[in-house]
Amino acid sequence: MNLAEGVQIVSFGILAVMMLGAALGVVLLNQIVYSAFLLGGVFMSISGLYILLNADFVAAAQILIYVGAVNVLILFAIMLVNKKEEFKPVRNRWIRQGATALVCVGLLALLSTMVLATPWAVDTTTVNASSTIIQIGKHFFSDFLLPFELASVLLLMAMVGAIILARRDFIPERKATTTEVETALTLPERPRELSGS
């Protein structure tokens, strides 16, 4: 074992410990804001693991999207929740906990069988790691063209859905002129003075 492999093994150990610790913190801490920030730590550790797998672009995208955008979105969602309250104890709590434990154990069993059944040997001879970004770009426009274009449709749908969900305030002048029949699909409207400011 030369120096580079030693550095890689040590880095993998540090990243794995960081990721497991942060993930346990996400689950176990009571303050939800701490959980959100620790989730950012989990994402950064995953990004480090991507770098260890020589996937530099995926690592950068992981930092850019998950830490920079998704985690910020989660933090804003937490900030939107009302101020901290004492929650009432839930009746029949053991049923929920039992169902959650069942689902989690089933998921663990499924993932374990998948890990054991997958042949992990990767053919390393075809890797021409001159620039992974150019490789990704070539794949985007040759054999992964349909997923690439479908991604834009998915982003369009996500944007439209987010705007419809988040802006439920009605515009009074339009409401006064047109007398539309409310269908079953319309969302409950929020009063203007609450949504403004």
Partner: peptide, 30 residues
């Protein structure tokens, strides 16, 4: 305190265009 929902809207729009940037970057390089 409860924050304004506008922050959430901006974060959502930012996520969409962030993902778009990541998809377009390999195209620009290659």
């Amino acid at each position: 305190i409860q924050f304004n929902i506008r922050y959430y809207m901006f974060a959502l729009v930012f996520v969409v265009f962030d993902v778009e940037t990541v998809f377009l970057y390999p195209w620009a390089v290659a």
